[in-house]
Amino acid sequence: MNAGFRSQVAAVVERDLRRERRRGDVVWVTIPFGAMALFLLPLAIGVDTQLLQRIGPGMYWVVVMLFGVLVSVGRASIETGAQRDAVSLLGLDPAAAYVGRSMSAAGLLLVYEIVVGVVAVVLYNIEVIGFPWLALTLVITAVGLGLLGSLAASLVSSSSAGSALVPLLVAPLSVPLLLGATQVYEGLRLGRSILSWMLLMVVVMLVTAIIGVGTARPLQET
């Protein structure tokens, strides 16, 4: 990665984070929505505390995946064709734009995961075990979802059904991440090896990154 590429990525990350600071989509919409979902689930399932403790980690990851997509949905609905044209006329490398958007989304998703995670621990009485591995899982999931969401947002940008379509595109493709994340926690809880699940998540992340970077230019041209 050369210096020009790095500075372009940094500029995109800075722009996205500044936009989030002004609009507060993640802080004021996505995080409360995720917390509310975790609050509602026990009302539908029943308030059996032992059952909730058992299914809590899985529920947490489902909420992270489904509602975390909203970070990318928000971006798809904000960016207009004129904005994208202006950015491409400025000479911004499409791959740098993709990496920057993914990194900013990953950062916001990590904040979302941590806050909603605290809510899940409190509401479901979840035991926090194997902290370094759990932290690594949070980071890999955030990066993987950020990459997938940014790619999906690029695919649907400036289309009428864009924001509605992003969850449909991201949810099935994020299944390996969901499986990996839930199995890592189960592995840590039961003292089983978690390396194969970590590997699965890293592979998904890398494959998405390669496809996203490789197709960034053709997607910009459309």
Partner: peptide, 18 residues
């Protein structure tokens, strides 16, 4: 579903190819 969101042939082709 993605193919149905774009009217222009080349836009649709490029996005769905990815």
């Amino acid at each position: 579903a993605l193919r149905n969101t774009a009217d222009e042939s080349r836009v649709r082709a490029g996005r769905s190819a990815v």
